[in-house]
Computed example of a mutant assay.
Amino acid sequence: MSLSNESAPPTAPRPAPVQPAATRVPLAIEDWATVIIMALLALITFANVLVRYFTNASFAWTEEVSVFLMIVLAMVAGSAAVARNRHIRIEYFADAGPESRQRALARLGAALVAVLFGLMAVLSARVLWDDVQYGETSPGIGVPQWWYSMWLPILSVAIMLRAVGLMLRGGQPAEDSVALPTSPEVRAEEHAP
């Protein structure tokens, strides 16, 4: 039994790939920050596992630092996702219809993301001010709480600026976006005569 293209149902033509646009601030910043944070998380967790295995005790600070690093990782990765126009959306609506509609929806989505993270930056700055004003300390290791809370407004502003950049680029993803891998069937179709 042989498989032939004659028995396969016709496929819809694939849309042309969107041409990426340049960003003013390179996405390598977010990419390298992600790599560094993931490496720190792995090292901290591995060290804690070794200490727990050999001494039956664990480092008290690892959980607090790991939670902080995971939050920073989510915010940094969110910034890169917004710049690459890969943030969460309902693709049925966002990728359907003519290109002008897709771009309008991408700009609308970017504007809403910018408003959300702008609001988040303002509100988290108020939390930061409270942490500084009242001398809050972290529950696990007793360091000043603002060491952790200062990153939320900073990273919220970064995401907001990436969203504004996406909106100004007309919904085009960033230039150094990584192409998503395709299945072997799609690759075979692309190289078919």
Rank of each mutant, 00 (worst) to 15 (best):
M1I: 01
A57L: 12
P181N: 05
T23S: 08
R86P: 01
Q172E: 15
A110Q: 06
A110T: 08
A106W: 01
R14K: 01
S7Q: 15
A94F: 04
A163I: 02
F46P: 11
S7L: 10
A96H: 06
S177V: 08
D131Q: 07
R169M: 02
S2Y: 15
T62Y: 04
Q102R: 00
F93V: 04
P98Y: 02
L152E: 05
M160P: 01
A42C: 13
P17D: 13
S100D: 07
A83T: 00
P144T: 05
S183I: 14
T34Q: 08
L123D: 13
R103V: 09
A83C: 02
Q133C: 03
L161C: 03
L41P: 00
T11V: 01
L108Q: 10
M38W: 09
A8K: 15
E175V: 05
R169T: 08
G78P: 01
E91R: 14
A47N: 10
Q19V: 15
V186Y: 14
L155A: 13
V164P: 03
G165S: 04
L108G: 09
M38E: 07
A188R: 12
L112P: 02
G142F: 01
P13V: 10
G140V: 01
R107D: 08
A179H: 01
A111D: 06
I88S: 10
R24M: 08
A192N: 11
V186R: 14
R14E: 07
T182D: 15
L69K: 04
V178R: 03
V143S: 05
L119V: 13
T62N: 04
S149G: 01
R24K: 12
D95V: 04
H87D: 13
Y53F: 12
E91F: 11
W151F: 12
S7D: 11
T137F: 11
S7N: 15
A22V: 11
V113R: 06
A74R: 00
P184G: 07
I36T: 06
A8S: 14
S100K: 06
S7H: 13
I90F: 14
V157E: 07
I44K: 09
Q172V: 11
F68Q: 12
L27T: 09
T11H: 04
A121V: 10
A47G: 15
M38R: 06
R101A: 11
A94K: 02
E63N: 08
E64F: 06
V72D: 12
A106G: 05
R162L: 07
L105Q: 02
D95Y: 12
N85G: 14
E30P: 00
A81E: 10
I36H: 14
A33C: 07
R169V: 04
A12R: 10
P144K: 05
T23H: 07
A57G: 04
L119A: 13
T62I: 03
A104M: 13
E30W: 03
E6L: 05
R52E: 10
M160Y: 07
S2T: 15
L168D: 02
M167S: 03
P139N: 12
A110G: 00
A77K: 13
Q145T: 06
A16Y: 00
V25T: 04
V18F: 13
P26E: 00
R162K: 09
F54V: 02
P98G: 11
I29L: 09
E64T: 03
W129F: 14
